[in-house]
Design a protein around this nucleic acid. Sequence first.
DNA 1: AATTTGACTTATAGTAACTCTAATGTAGTA
DNA 2: TACTACATTAGAGTTACTATAAGTCAAATT
Lengths: 143, 143
Amino acid sequence: MKKIKKEEPLDKTPKYTVKEVAKIMSVSAHTVRYYDNEGLIPFVTRTQSNIRMFSDYDLSWFKTVHCLRATDLSISDIKTYINLCLKGNKTIPQRAKIIFNQEKKLQEHLKELQKQMEILQKKKKYYKNLLKNKTNDIWNPYK
Amino acid sequence: MKKIKKEEPLDKTPKYTVKEVAKIMSVSAHTVRYYDNEGLIPFVTRTQSNIRMFSDYDLSWFKTVHCLRATDLSISDIKTYINLCLKGNKTIPQRAKIIFNQEKKLQEHLKELQKQMEILQKKKKYYKNLLKNKTNDIWNPYK
DNA sequence: AATTTGACTTATAGTAACTCTAATGTAGTA
DNA sequence: TACTACATTAGAGTTACTATAAGTCAAATT
């Protein structure tokens, strides 16, 4: 029989400032505000003096946004995804499609980058040799 | 004793139109013209009616540019690199530095993307389960 | 108490690298 | 000769930041 691990819901107490979130997520404070202004992090609260405070729950939304952005989904497509999330269970098939597609795209991107890595490493090797044998005659100036 | 393979110099006969280069390199024709206008492909010739024609030699420059761009070097930094190439052997140490640095940056980028891939695959699994057990109670709408 | 510091706010301008549109030119085919 | 299918340039538009300006507010210093 399969054991189901019940996860704890995330803490919704406001804890982190824009700057702290920026640091945790390795992005600029500008970007944090930008994402919030674009409505990508739905429930961020403010202090009585209008300052954004993020909870762990808000952070988890941010992590989702960051993951999708880091894998090159557009802001507007991320917004679509977030809005689907907010509409509840009936949007699961649509959300699943977005995630499956994104995984596929990333797969291809990784493959392409690995191809470029091979080219770069060939160039690296070429230059390493050149730096050793300084007298070498070079006819491919573009390498 | 190490055998040194003497490479053949590349053909400089004009052969490919913008569109053909675009297809070969999997970029848009716009991008091909843009790179040329920016001076990233130094020796592209034109027909008497002013139409760009690329040789295999030009293509090899393009491939270098494409590799650097695909690994996120800025256009202006690529221009710097190309100009160093054109200045001949005395710029080898500077060029080597650019390439070594680029390889390192790509290494890090690949690592980051692999991290994001793990997150995406967790989400994928999550949605696959949801699609199977349609009655599942979901409390993390952001997943 | 007044001032300064510093982190926050919004609004807006600037940037990089395309990406697209418009206006125009040319070469080959019907 | 007109049509089609491309090519050209110049310039506007787009995305996702990124930076700047001008201002608010609260805590710390004088």
